[in-house]
Design a protein around this nucleic acid. Structure first.
Lengths: 210, 210
DNA sequence: GAAAGAATACCCCTTTTGGGGTATTCTGTT
DNA sequence: AACAGAATACCCCAAAAGGGGTATTCTTTC
């Protein structure tokens, strides 16, 4: 290993901050460049630091780590942001991810897990504590959780897929090499099965949106 | 540990199937109840099996594992589905998750990782290979890129919202207490701004779907 | 106080969609 | 061999959507 992976820590709790710093510097792959306990101090030092990874707590005394993430992603787009925080709310988790968090650990992970996660992050992964991963995956499922089958046939599903792109009957017929009338027939059947009467309602209902 | 965690494997490739079976049975926490190489055979045996975890390959010779996941989630809502497949496309990953996959491993993970993932899954986690986790997290971030404004006015956004519910012009006009012609005019403007020419395309574009 | 943009409303017209049928082939299952 | 379901294709017709205009009122901004 030529260079150590550099990390800056933003964490208000002194104890935890020192523990992480020690852990990083004790390993022979990471190097803790700097630690900060408030957002204000972090911003004051920001121009002078350019680590590979930012380690960020979300609940800071003078603001939210989410804003910090956004700031980092704006001015250091290549840096990685590892969130490490107590579990707060699902909304907090999703907001952090939407704003650019590249990984999300819950406080309380073992030292071994932490080091593994940081390496995974540096190698292009997206490490998450298992509770977080669960939330994330569940958010996908709620997309169409109640999605019954509606007993659509393969062909009907296929046509619905085209409908959902906004394609015209003519277009779909062309692609599937059948007459436009056939497409119309299929669509009538789809609408009947889904109990809707236009394209948008069908798409929303089948794909569980709205 | 009182009982072993029971697993059923659906995987067409004989070599891999046997390897997984051996791995599971060699551990002292898992027990491979049964293996299947096709969806057909799997469904034939389905009524007689009720494992804790289903291990599912997505690319099967006689169909897609995604349909299998949906089937399992319908009839064994408490069972867990661990996908293990080659990386196919992002779409495939998201479809699998949306349809109920509880974990997603890429083929090629080490035996150690596999066993850890299965334990994590059983304990309520959502284990993913790091490439998958990265895709998943990135999908959150791109969700945010929707914030393009397209310079729609407040009124236009409001009308687009109604459009996205599949409401008719007449209906929208009624709710907003303006003439249907006004609604039409607004919608023409919306389509122009978004460079689309029908409702579905407008909704997809504005809300960042598709 | 003029100019620009937004919201309102109407005209014209064509194309597309949706709803009601009927009928023929094809395929898989019993 | 019989049957059911699916996919194909066509008919008719009305309603809705989309695209082209123009015009008036009302804010907001310069």
């Amino acid at each position: 290993m030529s260079e150590k992976i550099s990390i800056v820590v933003l964490e208000d709790e002194k104890n935890y901050r020192d523990t992480i710093k020690l852990l990083l510097n004790f390993s022979n792959i990471f190097c803790c460049l700097q630690t900060y306990e408030t957002i204000k101090k972090f911003y004051r030092g920001f121009d002078d630091i350019d680590p590979d990874i930012f380690w960020i707590d979300l609940n800071l005394p003078d603001g939210s780590g989410i804003d910090v993430i956004r700031h980092i992603k704006k001015y250091r787009p290549d840096a990685l942001c590892m969130v490490c925080s107590f579990f707060d709310s699902e909304e907090m988790v999703f907001k952090a991810l939407q704003n650019g968090a590249d990984g999300y650990l819950l406080k309380g992970e073992s030292n071994k897990k932490i080091l593994e996660a940081l390496q995974d992050l540096y190698n292009g992964g997206a490490p998450m504590s298992s509770t977080i991963a669960k939330k994330v995956i569940m958010s996908f499922q709620s997309y169409n959780a109640i999605q019954e089958n509606f007993s659509l046939t393969i062909r009907e599903k296929e046509i619905l897929e085209h409908l959902s792109n906004g394609e015209q009957y003519k277009e779909i017929g062309g692609k599937l090499n059948v007459s436009i009338e056939t497409i119309k027939k299929h669509i009538k059947n789809i609408y009947n099965k889904l109990h809707v009467n236009n394209r948008t309602e069908a798409v929303n209902k089948y794909y569980g949106l709205k």
